[in-house]
Design a protein around this nucleic acid. Structure first.
Lengths: 133, 133
DNA sequence: GATTTCACTTGTTTTTTGCAAGCAAACATA
DNA sequence: TATGTTTGCTTGCAAAAAACAAGTGAAATC
């Protein structure tokens, strides 16, 4: 029941479609991914909407309930940075979260809500932080 | 891999022995519990020490790495309080965590480190909070 | 000395996962 | 317009993991 990995992929890397989840996410099996997505949708953590131009695709978006998992994800990343030797989180990002927790949470939330992510894509959180300095 | 439930039982309810974990924890199977404990021990999240008076028992204690999971647990509880209809966390506790996060984390950490817990036993965190007011 | 408690282990069955392939609808190309 | 490709799944089947039931030995209790 590690569905939190999907939420993490959305928040950190801006993954939004079935194919994107399948491609990354440390190699999840396609039937398991389908089940987890259905499960997350049933639990009101994300919703599926048709892609505006490509009607084959579905866009998975976090609900309020899903967005509220962001603090949990940040704490987990912080823990991993402290204790997991092969963590992938950039040290300056971890330091920023520790120093300005509330502001970072609000910024991440607003960014993800409008389709952005922490690390990937234009208008990412790290990009905004870099601009604002 | 829901080993976090064991850590939660330690932090919130002061569970420390195999039998205590087995009794609560929403009915975990005994062989699975043994495997999870071994796994947590291997990963340096908890350590097993012989009980001082009863030599049949083993005491499971959180390491520094394990104690550092406390913020994650508190965030999960906060999320559950917001969105899980049948959450068991007392509202006043959740409110306290939100209002004085850093102080609560430090207090919980110190309490668990010396064998206490948030809710159970003498000298629990909620008892200390009630005293200090 | 017999019984109970405690922390496990050892089968066995049931559920979950991983892998491979397939499928229909929608798009892209020619 | 015909053909091939992409996309989001589903379907069988083997492998791994979990739940269930019972047992074991050491240490405590009676």
């Amino acid at each position: 029941m590690w569905s939190l990995l999907i939420v993490r992929d959305i928040v950190y890397f801006g993954k939004r479609t079935y194919g994107e989840f399948l491609a990354s996410d440390e190699g999840i099996a396609t039937n398991i991914l389908a089940r987890r997505l259905a499960h997350l949708e049933q639990n009101g953590i994300l919703i599926k909407t048709p892609h505006p131009t490509d009607r084959r695709k579905e866009i998975y978006t976090l609900t309020e309930k899903g967005l509220d998992l962001i603090p949990v994800l940040l704490e987990l990343a912080n823990w991993g940075a402290q204790h997991d030797p092969d963590t992938s989180a950039p040290p300056e990002w971890i330091a920023l979260v520790r120093a300005e927790r509330d502001r970072v949470i609000a910024l991440v939330r607003a960014t993800v809500q409008r389709g952005g992510s922490i690390f990937a894509g234009a208008g990412s959180v790290i990009e905004q932080i870099a601009q604002g300095r």
